Computed example of a mutant assay.
Amino acid sequence: MRALRLAAFRAFYRLPFRWRRRLVRMGSVHYIVGAVTIVRDADAESPGRILLLRQPPGPGWSVPGGLLNRGERPIAGAARELAEETGIRLPIDRLRPATPNAVVHTGGRWVDMVFETEVPADAPLDPDEAEVHEAAWHPLDALPRLTGPTARLLAHYGIGPLKAEDD
């Protein structure tokens, strides 16, 4: 068995770099990486409100976010997606990493980098009509129907129908 393994590695390292890289990528786990932002109403009294989006194709509500571009920093991607989907343009220093900052979904193949910010509810919203049907503020104690991934993500932060009972 050891001789077979040695022969396989020798053959592998004789291949051109481009082919070796392709073989490694074919055998490696692939991840989808996104960035999302939990946007709280800066002026709301307890229990507070968050900004949610109703997006196609489903009827549930979600937080602003999307996939990162190749080589894009997660915080920059979160700021870009927030601007694209809601019209709220914030410099990246207005976003802060949530705790936990990374949430792994669906069998470990999808990772969201999560950020938080506060914005006054009277900030003008200009949702991208191609991506967003509606953007609205919702009280934390009376959230609308959330998408499954959003409900699971928000539960990590003690928000929504799936949050732990002791929160």
Results as ranks from 00 to 15, higher is better:
1 M>E: 13
3 A>P: 03
6 L>D: 15
7 A>G: 10
9 F>Y: 13
10 R>K: 14
12 F>Q: 00
12 F>I: 00
13 Y>G: 00
16 P>Q: 02
19 W>H: 03
20 R>F: 03
28 S>R: 06
29 V>I: 12
29 V>F: 11
30 H>A: 13
32 I>W: 13
32 I>C: 07
32 I>S: 14
35 A>R: 05
35 A>L: 05
36 V>C: 12
39 V>Q: 06
39 V>R: 05
42 A>E: 14
43 D>K: 15
44 A>K: 06
45 E>L: 11
45 E>T: 13
52 L>K: 01
53 L>K: 01
60 G>D: 05
60 G>H: 04
61 W>G: 03
62 S>C: 11
63 V>R: 08
64 P>D: 07
65 G>C: 04
65 G>E: 04
71 G>T: 01
72 E>F: 02
74 P>S: 05
74 P>F: 02
75 I>R: 12
76 A>K: 09
76 A>N: 10
82 L>S: 08
83 A>G: 06
84 E>C: 00
88 I>E: 10
88 I>F: 09
89 R>H: 09
92 I>T: 15
92 I>C: 06
92 I>E: 15
94 R>V: 00
96 R>D: 04
98 A>N: 00
98 A>M: 05
98 A>Q: 00
99 T>E: 14
100 P>M: 05
104 V>C: 06
105 H>V: 02
105 H>D: 12
107 G>V: 01
108 G>V: 02
110 W>A: 14
110 W>F: 14
111 V>R: 13
111 V>A: 09
117 T>H: 09
119 V>E: 04
121 A>I: 07
121 A>L: 08
122 D>I: 06
123 A>V: 13
124 P>R: 15
124 P>D: 14
125 L>M: 14
126 D>G: 11
127 P>S: 06
128 D>P: 01
128 D>K: 00
130 A>K: 10
133 H>I: 08
133 H>E: 15
138 H>Y: 14
138 H>L: 07
140 L>T: 04
140 L>D: 07
141 D>K: 01
141 D>C: 03
142 A>D: 15
142 A>K: 08
143 L>K: 06
144 P>W: 08
146 L>E: 10
147 T>M: 11
148 G>P: 09
148 G>Q: 09
148 G>R: 11
153 L>P: 03
155 A>K: 02
155 A>Y: 04
158 G>K: 00
159 I>S: 00
161 P>V: 04
163 K>Q: 07
164 A>Q: 07
166 D>Y: 12
166 D>R: 11
167 D>R: 14
